[in-house]
Every structure is written in structure tokens, then in C-alpha cells.
Design a binder for these strands. Structure first.
Lengths: 248, 248
DNA sequence: CGCAGAATTGATACATCTCAAGCTGGGTGG
DNA sequence: CCACCCAGCTTGAGATGTATCAATTCTGCG
């Protein structure tokens, strides 16, 4: 599996854009120093597979910039996205060798990698890391369960609205813009990837996006640039409780 | 919220049926002693709600016997089950006050509860507990993602077969019977609960179970007692990779 | 015995899928 | 510079799986 990714020289953890959200968020400076010894950066190009399902993983790490997806595929080709990895999200599972999913970069992407074995050793001696990882895993579990409601019970239109509102919210939270009034963001996914996330076909995704545009819930400039004039309207369409929830 | 559950006197942890699988699995005997100081048992009757969505939780704990479900409900009544809790599974989220889901006992059930605050204190001082909880949470995350594939991409027939194979597997693993040849177990869920788990209607569940019976994939005695003459046939119907996987 | 909750079965409606045709925009090579 | 090409996307028409509505049939239990 020779990839053509470039290996980048180490940067300092101070000043890292995900310093306060990633698995290292709670670390003290001496702990950061130990982490810096076992970390390295790797870049991936859009479309490149970071880890193949079933493959042995020699590292774990955090997404620094860019977006990746976790997908599961059945023998006959049906695929389901089971996770969307944004900057600060953690990749890999300490204590297990293989990944059960494909991890694919959907945009150009930079990861902060830790060699697996040393990281596992650090986890058992550094409660700050283990604790933060537990917290992040619990959050992911909540998100996965939230998504089960979307997949199991929502209509195609509600599914699209749900996905848009999640992307809008995470984008706003990352860039520290308020989740209120008009929102603008770029879709990081193709129609097909959206379909794989939502358990739909790409045609249905396309039709529902057109319908939301026609109904004035969203505005499109090109295929990817989205404006949401009224976020609470979008939440309504998603069928979510809309008790004025701002970003988490 | 006065429930009519009975509070049962403390038992010893040694000899506990879930001793080796629950959150306390890795504890040494001195750690168990500390746990015994903050633990108590509670019984719930079939149908009783253990925790209401949004309610403050004053405890966390483990299912000792019986079965519970985690469900999410939309305003208009659509509901989706997002978790099935079997003996040894953990209930509650350290570090968060409210539950995002309803937790409901579907059979008579006994829980080993820990007062929340003391448990959280113990977690930060007892790496064995925190580590085991992380491990269990990662397993649940994998299970939730597996389920996303079922909800998003499988047909009704495949969904039923998937649910049956999961119940059969967990039942066999709990009772240490081999996952091979004929399997016999009782369905712990009503048709409606199965529908809520699978993102179907109860009528569709009923029809597909009848179809599987007609095709000889399963045999039924009454509504709940299931015999699976050939487990690998069932896995086939579920659309899973059937590379001879035994129980985990 | 007869009732009530759970399950089955039937007929029809409808949301989404499937198959197919055409559109769009950005990159490339003649 | 234009024509072409191609991946990504849109739109249409018809097929199909599951939901919906409605009527029975089970099953356990007071």
C-alpha cells in the first residue's frame, strides 16, 4: 500500500488549530512534549483512502484540516457512511488492530498521527488523554444514535435538511460564527456521498435539494455553495425539536 | 416521578453473574470493596420506564438481568430504538446530567446502580474502571455503526434476519452455547419494539417473519420462541459477510 | 367465557428506487 | 480559442417495496 502522501515535518502543538478540541485538549505542557515525540503529520489528497477496512492500522490520530468519511460496504456494493470526520475528530481505535471501516479523505486533508503502540502506552499513564478520549467517544456515540433516528424514521426531505443543519452547525462552531440568521457554507460532500450518508440514492438527494431550493429553505450558488436564509426554518424541515438550540 | 420499584439489599460482587463483563470487570478486590459502598440494586417491572428522556439521572449502573431499550421519539410520535441493553451493559453517561433517551425495561429487570457523583469520583481515581468504560463505549460505537448500515441500506427481510442473528448471538454468548448448527432462543421484544429498532412498521415486521418461517429460515413456537435450524443460512439472509464468524 | 393486547393477513396508496436521457462546468488538447 | 470530454448533477417516467388503513385471528388471563 504505497501512497503518495507527503510526510510533513513536525510543528509545535502550541498554536495548533485543534489544540483545544482534539484528544490532546486536556494535556499539560509536559504531556504535550511527550506527545510531540511520537507524533508526525501526514497529508492526503481528496479522494485518497486513508485506511482500508480490515487493514492493520499502524497509527491513530486527529484530523487537523479537511474532511474524511467512515464507510461500510456490503458485498454487493451497497455502502453506508457511518461517520463524518471533521477537524479535531479522532481516527482509529486504541486496543484494536484493524479498522472495521474504510476511512476516506473527501477533501485534501492533514492528519496529526501518533504511532499506535506508544500512544497506547501513553494512554495508560496519562489520564488526561484517556479521559478526553472517553468523552469524545461518548459524544460520537450520541451522534451515531442521533443519526439512527434520521436513517430509521425520517423522510428524504427531512434527511437532507438534517444533514445540512449538521454541516452548518459544525461549520459555524469550527469558525466561531453565530448559528443564527443567515448561514453560508460549502458542502464538503458530493451528492453520492450525501446519499451514502443518508441511506438514499443520489437521484433522490438531488431531487430533494432542488425541492428545498424551490421552497426557499436554501439557496444554491453552483452545486456546492449553500446559503441558509433562516436556520430555524431548516431545523423545522429536519423535524428536530427546535427549541432555539444554538451550537454546542 | 414515584416508581413502584423495589429496592433490594446489597449482594456481594463475587459471584455476580456479570462480574467479568460489566464496567467493573477489571477491578481488583479492593476496588470492588469501594464500589460495594456506593452500589445498590433496583428492580423494574416489564414495561416500566427506568429513565425518561431529558430527566436528570441520579445514578449510573449495569443491567444485571433482563432487557432494556434506549429509544428516541420525535414530536409527532415516530420512535426509533437506538440501543438494546442486555445483561452487563452500562446505563448512563458519566459527566452528563440528563439522558437524551428514554430507557425502558422490556422484561422484568434488575440493575446494579451506583450513585452518580461518587462513581464519577471513583472513575478519576480508578483507571481500571475508566479504561473498561472506554472499551465498552468503543464497542457500543461499533455496534451503533453496524446498525446504521442495517437501517440505511438493508431490505426489510435483511433487517429482520439481522436482528434475529444479533439476538441469537448475544443470547448464545451470554449462555455460553456454541453459535453453530441449530439455535433456540426467545424474542425479548414485541413486534412493535422490533419495528422501532428496525425502522419499519409492525405490519412489515410481521409479514417478513412469516416469510422467513415459510421459507424455513426460522421456526416459531408461539409468537416468541424461535428455532434457527441453520445459523449460517440466517446470516446469509441478513446480507452479512458470512466468513464463518463465531461469537465475539 | 369473553375480553384485551398482540399478531396476522389483505387491499391499496405512496415514497423512494431504478433506469434512462440530458444538462453543466471546468479542464485539456488540438 | 474553441471543441470536446467527462464527472457530477438534474430531471423524467415507470417499477417496486414498504406504509397505511382495515378486518380478522390468536393467546393468555381475569
Amino acid at each position: 500500500m504505497l501512497n503518495d502522501e507527503k510526510t510533513v515535518l513536525s510543528h509545535e502543538c502550541e498554536g495548533c488549530p485543534i489544540r483545544h478540541r482534539a484528544v490532546c485538549a486536556r494535556c499539560e505542557s509536559d504531556e504535550l512534549e511527550r506527545l510531540e515525540e511520537i507524533k508526525y503529520y501526514r497529508s492526503f489528497e481528496a479522494g485518497q483512502t486513508i485506511i482500508w477496512s480490515g487493514d492493520r492500522m499502524e497509527f491513530v490520530g486527529s484530523v487537523v484540516s479537511g474532511i474524511a468519511t467512515l464507510t461500510q460496504t456490503m458485498e454487493d456494493g451497497r455502502t453506508q457512511m457511518v461517520g463524518l470526520l471533521l477537524p479535531s475528530d479522532f481516527v482509529g481505535r486504541p486496543g484494536r488492530d484493524g479498522s472495521p471501516y474504510d476511512v476516506v479523505a473527501t477533501t485534501d486533508l492533514v492528519m496529526c498521527c501518533f504511532r499506535k503502540r506508544p500512544f497506547e502506552d501513553m494512554m495508560s499513564t496519562t489520564p488526561h488523554i484517556a479521559h478526553r478520549l472517553l468523552e469524545m467517544t461518548l459524544d460520537e456515540l450520541d451522534a451515531a444514535r442521533e443519526w439512527m433516528l434520521v436513517l430509521g424514521r425520517k423522510t428524504a426531505r427531512e434527511k437532507i435538511a438534517s444533514l445540512l443543519s449538521i454541516i452548518a452547525r459544525r461549520d459555524a462552531s469550527l469558525n466561531l460564527r453565530p448559528t443564527q440568521g443567515a448561514l453560508v457554507f460549502d458542502l464538503p460532500l458530493t451528492r453520492e456521498a450525501m446519499a451514502d450518508y443518508l441511506g438514499l440514492t443520489l437521484e433522490t438527494v438531488s431531487r430533494q435539494i432542488s425541492a428545498l431550493k424551490r421552497d426557499g429553505v436554501i439557496e444554491l450558488e453552483g452545486k456546492r455553495h449553500v446559503t441558509v436564509p433562516d436556520f430555524s426554518r431548516l431545523l423545522d424541515e429536519a423535524g428536530d425539536d427546535n427549541d432555539g438550540g444554538m451550537l454546542a
